[in-house]
């Protein structure tokens, strides 16, 4: 931390007192105020959302969308949100770990940093562009794959046919989300892989381990908390991501099948319905937003908790 006390001079007879300068006072107060303002903003986010959401809970259940109260309205959305995020994680996690290992341990040293930038480039592309790409390019491309899944693995509930002819399904939305969270997981995994103590790696290699055995025994155990927190942060992003799902998915009622049109996520429902909503519907959507906020908050807190635990037990020092 910073040393802010002026260096001690020769001990005077009377202890010197720092001159109270108005400039100092004003500056430190305004800095503090800005900090407090952030807390106020966050409290405001919670307060206004709760305030606007409240009518949903006090209203007659029959007036809510669907006619059976808020919870029967929101659970299919929560299901859709989780389903899309899980598909994204299943697709993105192995890829991201592979890429991170490639950049940290496989790629030629000279290229590694440049390749890292290339993957970071994915993170710079706005989500609406991914949405546009997903609906106009990806959906037609992957549609045959979903048809194949529905035809051959249709006995599994999530692949029940008939597959959507447009390809605008939960699976496609999940794949787009996977592309979007790929750079997040990759960046964090790459960082922790690069932090593996070189001595551990060299020790493993000196004992005759192949490169994969070295990675399995030295790099992965060291990086495990980082990997988990990267996955959790990716999950947090996938849960809250709006545009990719709102644009790609052809939304509808609840269905187990991931290869047909149907289902929706909280974020997509808000984006699609909020602009034209009025009255109680607005309150219902804000309440749904509150649920989303709570879910992502829990996921992100868990991720941070793992990271903070890591710094205590890493043994890297």
């Amino acid at each position: 931390m910073t040393t802010t006390k002026p260096p001690p001079t020769e001990p005077p007879a009377v202890a010197p007192r720092a001159k109270a300068r108005p400039g100092d006072r004003i500056f430190s107060r305004s800095a503090q105020l800005a900090g407090i303002l952030i807390l106020v903003i966050l409290a405001g986010v919670a307060a206004f959302l709760v305030r606007e959401a409240l009518p949903t809970f006090t209203a007659d259940p029959s007036e809510i969308d669907g006619g059976e109260g808020f919870f029967s309205y929101v659970w299919p959305l929560v299901f859709g949100t989780l389903a899309a995020a899980i598909i994204a994680l299943v697709v993105a996690t192995p890829l991201a770990l592979g890429i991170a290992l490639f950049i940290s341990h496989y790629a030629p040293r000279r290229l590694a940093q440049g390749l890292g930038y290339v993957v970071d480039l994915l993170a710079a592309i706005p989500s609406v562009v991914f949405g546009l790409w997903g609906i106009q390019w990806l959906a037609p491309q992957v549609q045959p794959a979903w048809t194949w899944l529905a035809d051959n693995l249709g006995f599994i509930p999530i692949f029940t046919g008939p597959a959507s002819a447009t390809g605008r399904t939960m699976m496609t939305a999940g794949v787009v989300l996977a592309v979007m969270i790929l750079p997040i997981i990759t960046a964090i995994a790459r960082e922790v892989f690069l932090q593996t103590p070189t001595l551990h790696e060299e020790a493993a290699l000196a004992l005759g381990a192949t490169r994969w055995e070295m990675i399995r025994m030295a790099v992965i155990p060291f990086g495990r908390p980082g990997i988990i927190s990267g996955i959790m942060l990716g999950l947090g992003r996938a849960l809250g991501e709006t545009m990719a799902v709102a644009m790609v998915l052809s939304t509808g009622g609840f269905t187990w099948s991931m290869v047909t049109a149907g289902n929706s996520t909280i974020a997509a429902e808000i984006a699609l319905d909020f602009p034209d909503s009025s009255g109680l519907k607005t309150n219902t959507l804000i309440a749904a937003g509150l649920v989303l906020f709570a879910i992502t908050l829990a996921v992100n807190m868990f991720a941070r908790w793992i990271v903070s635990r890591r710094s205590e037990f890493s043994g890297a020092n």
């Binding site: 952030i38 903003i41 966050l42 986010v45 959302l49 606007e52 942060l233 947090g236 849960l239 809250g240 991501e241 709006t242 974020a267 808000i270 984006a271 909020f274 959507l285 804000i286 937003g289 989303l292 906020f293 992502t296 908050l297 996921v299 992100n300 807190m301």
Partner: peptide, 12 residues
């Protein structure tokens, strides 16, 4: 915590 707010919630 604020870093993790979904963008749609910020809009709401």
């Amino acid at each position: 915590v604020m870093t993790g707010i979904p963008s749609i919630v910020a809009g709401l």
